[in-house]
Nucleic acid binder design. Structure first.
Length: 505
RNA sequence: GGCGCUAUCGUCUAAUGGUUAGGACGAAUGGUUUUCAGCCAUUAAAUCAGGGUUCGAUUCCCUGUAGCGCUACCA
C-alpha cells in the first residue's frame, strides 16, 4: 500500500450546484493541504455529467469562494483579472461534459473486453424488477437480463434501437465470483463480495457517463495519485477498482474522509441551517475562522493547539491524522473561533470587513471619518461573535437611541436619583473643556466628579451609559462618550443627557 | 431488507495493556466591574452493552446494540 508516486496529484471534483457545501469545503481543504504539504498539485475538475443539475455561474462562484479562502488550484480553472473563468493545465479539458468522446471510447473498450455490456431495458422494466425484489426482501439490483444476450441479439437490438432513435445504456459487468479489496488510507482495508455489487450503468442513454466511469477515466488521465473524497463514496469504490482493473490501469490511492453531520446526526444538509460557505461568509464569519474550524472536523494535530493559520495547517497536515468517525457541525464552537479571530485581526482590516454590515443598516459609512469608525469597532470587536452583529450593536453611534425611561434607572437607585445624577452630569459635561474628552482623561474627570460629590459609581455611570447608548448592555460610558465626542461632538453628548432628563421628568 | 463504516464528557477530540482518562467549545459558580463582553479561578460532565484474552482492558478479539452511509440512466 505504500506506493511511491513521482508526483503527488490530488483533486477537488465538485458538481456545479451553485454553492459550496461546507462538506465540499472540508474535502477540498484536505486535498489542498495534502497537496501543499507534499509539494504536489491540486487539480480542479468540474463534474457536470448530470445535465439536470447544472447551475449557471456555478464555476465562477466556486472559484470566487475558494480564492477568497486561499485555496488555489494548480490545474483546472481560475479567475482572470476580469473575473472571468479560464482553464489551465495540460490534462484537460477539466469539464467533464467536454470529455464525452473519451468516456465513450473506454465504455466501448470495456464492452469489447467483456467487462461491460449494452442494456436495453427501459425504465418501466427496471422499476418492476426493483419492486419485485423489494417485495421479496431481496437487495434491489439489476437482474442482468441483458448480460445474457448473445452477440447476435445485441446486434439486432442495437439496430432496432437505432431505428427507433433510442440509445441503450452500457452497464459494468461485475465479475461473477470473488471479492475486491478496497485499500483506504483512512479506513484501512475493506472487502466487498462481488455478488452484492450491482451492474451499474456507466454510460447513460444521453451519451453522458455516470460518475463511476467518469471518475475512473478522469483520475487516470489526469494522473491523480490520491483520491480524497467523502465517506459516502466508500461503497462504490470497489466498482471503481474493478473498472481500473478491467482497463488495465493502476488505481490511485484512496483516502475517504468522514462525514459532517447535523446536530441530529443526519448528513449535513440545507434543511437544518446553513451549509453553504457563502452563507457563512455573508453572515460575517471570517475566512480564517471557517478554515480553522472546518479543518478540525475529522482531523486534529494530536496536540493541544487549536488555533491554526492556513500555513500552519499545511505544515502539520497528515492524512494519517484523519479520524474515521463522523463529526457534528457545532456552530457554538465556530462562533467562539470566529470571535477569537475578530478580536485578533488588525483593526484596519476589520473596519474594511465591517463596512458592508453598517451599510446594510442604511448607515452611510462614507459620511463619517475613518477614525470614528475604527474607534467604534475598537469598542465592539471584542464582543462580536460575527461581524454581522456590528450594525445592531453600534447603531447609537450613528443615530439617537430609542429606549424606555426605565432603562435609565440603576438597579440600586430610583427615577429621582437617576434624574438628579443626569442633571449633575449635564453640568459636568457642560463645564468640561473639550481637551478632556479623551477616554483616559474623561475617566479621570468623571471619577473625580463622582468622588467629590460622594456618589455611587453605578448611580452615575449606569444612567450616563444608558442615555448615551439606549442599551442595557454595551461598552462602558467613558469610551462611549469619548468615541461619541470624536464623531458627533460634545453637543451630541449633552443632547442625549438632556433627552434622558426629559424622559424621567 | 442487503452491504459497509463508526462508537471516549452535550459537542470537537487526546491518551494508554496499568493514568486522578487530558485539552477545547458549551454549561454552572465565584472574582474583577456601572451593564455586557473579556480576563482570572473553580466545578459538573465520557470510555455503548455483554462475553472472552490477560495478573490487569477504555485500549486487543467476538457478539450484540445504536447511529450513520450506500443500495438511480444523481453526484
Amino acid at each position: 500500500m505504500a506506493h511511491t508516486h513521482p508526483e503527488i496529484r490530488t483533486r477537488f471534483a465538485p458538481s456545479p450546484t451553485g454553492f459550496v457545501h461546507i462538506g465540499s469545503l472540508r474535502t477540498a481543504l484536505f486535498a489542498f493541504l495534502f497537496a501543499r504539504k507534499n509539494s504536489g498539485k491540486l487539480i480542479l475538475r468540474i463534474e457536470d455529467t448530470d445535465q439536470n443539475r447544472f447551475v449557471e455561474g456555478a464555476v465562477e462562484n466556486l472559484l470566487k469562494v475558494m480564492q477568497h479562502l486561499g485555496i488555489n488550484f494548480d490545474e483546472g480553472f481560475y479567475l482572470d483579472d476580469q473575473g472571468k473563468v479560464q482553464e489551465k493545465g495540460e490534462k484537460g479539458p477539466y469539464l467533464q461534459s467536454q470529455r464525452l468522446e473519451l468516456y465513450k471510447k473506454y465504455a466501448l473498450e470495456l464492452v469489447e473486453k467483456g467487462s461491460a455490456y449494452y442494456c436495453f431495458c427501459d425504465e418501466q422494466r427496471l422499476e418492476e424488477v426493483r419492486k419485485e425484489q423489494i417485495a421479496l426482501k431481496k437487495p434491489p439490483m439489476y437482474d442482468r437480463l441483458c448480460r445474457k444476450l448473445t452477440p447476435e441479439e445485441v446486434r439486432e437490438k442495437l439496430n432496432e434501437a437505432k431505428a427507433q432513435g433510442k440509445n441503450p445504456v452500457i452497464r459494468q459487468a461485475i465479475p461473477e465470483g470473488g471479492s475486491t479489496l478496497v485499500p483506504d488510507l483512512v479506513y484501512g482495508e475493506m472487502t466487498y463480495e462481488h455478488r452484492i455489487l450491482d451492474d451499474q450503468v456507466i454510460l447513460k442513454s444521453d451519451g453522458f457517463p455516470t460518475y463511476h466511469l467518469a471518475v475512473v477515466v478522469d483520475d487516470h488521465f489526469m494522473e491523480i495519485s490520491h483520491v480524497i473524497r467523502g465517506e459516502e463514496w466508500i461503497p462504490s469504490t470497489p466498482k471503481h477498482i474493478l473498472l481500473y482493473q478491467a482497463l488495465g490501469w493502476a488505481p490511485p490511492e484512496f483516502a475517504h474522509v468522514p462525514l459532517i453531520l447535523n446536530p441530529d446526526k443526519s448528513k449535513l444538509s440545507k434543511r437544518q441551517g446553513d451549509v453553504a460557505v457563502e452563507d457563512f461568509l455573508s453572515k460575517g464569519y471570517l475566512k480564517e475562522a471557517l478554515i480553522n474550524f472546518v479543518a478540525f472536523l475529522g482531523w486534529n494535530p494530536k496536540t493541544d493547539q487549536e488555533i491554526f493559520s492556513l500555513q500552519e495547517l499545511i505544515e502539520q497536515f497528515d492524512l494519517k491524522k484523519i479520524n474515521k468517525s463522523a463529526a457534528i457541525f457545532d456552530l457554538a464552537k465556530l462562533d467562539w473561533l470566529n470571535s477569537l479571530y475578530i478580536r485578533n485581526k488588525p483593526l484596519r482590516e476589520t473596519v474594511a470587513l465591517a463596512l458592508p454590515f453598517w451599510e446594510l443598516l442604511g448607515i452611510n459609512t462614507e459620511s463619517y471619518p475613518k477614525e470614528y469608525l475604527s474607534e467604534i469597532l475598537t469598542l465592539e470587536k471584542d464582543r462580536l461573535k460575527k461581524l454581522s452583529e456590528i450594525g445592531e450593536r453600534t447603531k447609537y453611534f450613528f443615530a439617537q437611541p430609542e429606549y424606555e425611561k426605565e432603562l435609565l434607572i440603576w438597579k440600586k437607585a430610583d427615577a429621582n436619583d437617576a434624574s438628579h445624577k443626569l442633571q449633575k452630569l449635564y453640568e459636568f459635561f457642560t463645564n468640561l473643556p473639550e481637551g478632556r474628552f479623551q477616554k483616559t482623561s474623561l475617566e479621570e474627570e468623571l471619577k473625580k466628579f463622582i468622588g467629590q460629590n460622594g456618589f455611587d459609581n453605578g448611580s452615575v455611570l449606569w444612567p450616563l451609559r444608558t442615555c448615551l447608548t439606549g442599551m442595557a448592555a454595551s461598552p462602558g460610558p467613558f469610551e462611549v462618550a469619548a468615541t461619541l465626542f470624536i464623531g458627533l461632538g460634545k453637543t451630541e453628548i449633552l443632547k442625549r443627557i438632556k433627552i434622558g432628563i426629559d424622559k424621567l421628568a
